[in-house]
Design a protein around this nucleic acid. Structure first.
Lengths: 322, 322
DNA sequence: GCAGATGCACAACCAATGGTTGTGGCTCGC
DNA sequence: GCGAGCCACAACCATTGGTTGTGCATCTGC
């Protein structure tokens, strides 16, 4: 089925005349007539009743019309989404079930009129994200560069929001029945976070965490996927992992895993947003404002060093070192 | 743009290989390759990066994907909406801003997964609606046949819900400042309801209303459209009209018109639903149940005679005659 | 390192499509 | 009853969109 035929159908239905639709679409009246006829032949129904003063929708035509409108609108949005120098807001996230994507989805649900495309760069290198922002391939990226000095001049990184960390353990783990945990209680327990690329923002985060709280964080080993990780956790009496409290991985219920918040201090993973310094996409403003409306974290919150480097004075945060 | 090309794009993106998408769609791999290439040429962007093990979405491809899914789903819904012997529920209403359509819209908003098409037969004759239900062109019709004996055997009419009547007047009308009105107070005031076809259900309703309460209801004259009616009402000191309280005509605010409920008795316009006696559309059940959840009318409610004919004993209602 | 398998792209070919111009038939209004 | 307006049909032609056959690149297994 041709979307231009559907567009002709919609306009003809709205204008009541094939002639007017043809004028508007820049083709001859005969072309529109043929398009409609082809639609009718393909669908096996009559869409219009022809009168002397134009056309009028049949019942089938009325039933089709809203769906045809949907299709045409979808095509238009699709075109807008990939138009070079697009005005559709395009944001890069690390994954579709991360806290970043969840918060974006929450925003979109409360502002469903927002034209927003969520994409994922298939490379883990934050420099690729910076380059993509620079090139205009994406309007913003939920990534962190741990060395802000490495940022080019025309790109900046701002703090988006913090994601508190929780411990994820199986039922046989000695900490499984705790309501909350402090970082000190995690000492000597093995924490496994597989699939962390060296020098990635996650590697830096876990490195600092291990150093500051004397933890056993084991980032070695390839990531065989979440299914495998969950299976291992569920069966193990001594392996745990860390997850963000806002992450919405669909933990299979039959694994009987537990999420235990970590407090005193809360361990905050800071989410940053990389965006162009000049002329950022106008839709970004409202999304950044939305971050401020998220529940704030307690005063006793630990953050990695690169999140505590003051960018503006009023944004400076305490750096906790136990 | 071809919707089959978009469908190929969606499946190829989901399956990661043009070959698999081609198998599924029943065409050759080359055809899918060509479709994607055409899409890319038309859109001016690259949608996939080709790898040795298949294809992977580019950023532009990721941005397009959800919209392409929308389009494909819209096409599928459109096809379902007009399939002969369709399983998409199709209901006929008298107009899109009538109480019938408003109640249907309310139902749909609370059950957005319902596939529902709302159409309007362009003829005012209820017999045409009966015939359309009989022929299966529509699954149900919000119409009334005032003589139930005229219904064919394989079609039945049930009571849907009642729509209370309100008086609509301009600011200079003597009744303009009333909070509520009784039918007796309307006596000797001119009530103008233009565009009522003789022997239609509305004509019957106003006839009985005029007789039972001794009202001056003037149904003569053509209907020049709501705009004209509203203009006349707004300017006139002696013309009023009747509207249903659930009707949602967008009354222009600058007309300063007033809606005044009529009570003691409430004047109920009964909405009926005509549907096949055998094998009604399965989606109808939930909608009919929905009617029961609407706010009930007070005990002192007037209804036209044809709405008080007992259909089943428990559905019998009092017939008020002042 | 090499052979085979796998997966996408290009070429050649052909039926079908979708646009054009020209024309005819129908209904409405004067 | 005649002209205006609108849609459908016919003839024509460039383009499309499918096919089969083939080529090229990459990954896999020995």
């Amino acid at each position: 089925m041709d979307t231009e035929a559907l567009r002709s159908f919609v306009r003809a239905a709205e204008l009541g005349q094939l002639q007017h639709a043809a004028d508007e679409l820049g083709v001859t009246q005969q072309a529109v007539s043929k398009r409609i006829a082809t639609l009718e032949r393909d669908l096996g129904v009559r869409l219009f009743t022809r009168t002397a003063r134009g056309v009028e929708l049949t019942l089938d035509g009325q039933a089709l019309l809203p769906h045809a409108r949907d299709v045409v609108a979808g095509v238009d949005r699709g075109m807008a989404a990939i138009r070079p120098g697009s005005r559709t807001l395009r944001i890069d996230v690390l994954g579709l079930r991360t806290a970043q994507a969840v918060v974006l989805h929450d925003y979109w649900r409360s502002h469903p009129e927002t034209d927003l495309d969520v994409v994922t760069l298939r490379v883990n290198d934050p420099r690729a994200a910076v380059a993509a922002v620079q090139a205009g391939d994406i309007d913003a990226s939920f990534r962190s560069v741990t060395d802000p000095a490495a940022l080019p001049r025309d790109v900046r990184m701002i703090h988006a929001f913090d994601s508190p960390t929780e411990l994820l353990v199986g039922p046989r783990h000695p900490l499984a029945s705790a309501r909350t945990l402090t970082p000190a209680q995690l000492r000597r327990h093995r924490i496994w976070v597989p699939g962390i690329a060296p020098h990635s923002e996650w590697a830096d985060f876990y490195d600092q965490l291990a150093t500051d709280f004397d933890l056993r964080i084991d980032a070695a080993g390839p990531n065989f996927g979440n299914e495998v990780l969950l299976d291992i956790l569920a069966d193990s009496a001594d392996v745990a992992t860390l997850v963000g409290s806002r992450d919405r991985y669909i933990w299979p219920t039959n694994h009987d895993l537990r999420r235990i918040p970590i407090v005193s201090p809360t361990l905050a993973y800071p989410l940053s947003l990389i965006l162009p310094r000049a002329n950022p996409h106008p839709g970004l403003r409202a999304i950044i404002d939305h971050f401020a409306s998220l529940a704030p974290l307690p005063a006793t919150t630990w953050r990695p060093s690169w999140a505590t480097t003051p960018r503006r004075r009023e944004e400076a945060v305490e750096h906790h070192r136990p």
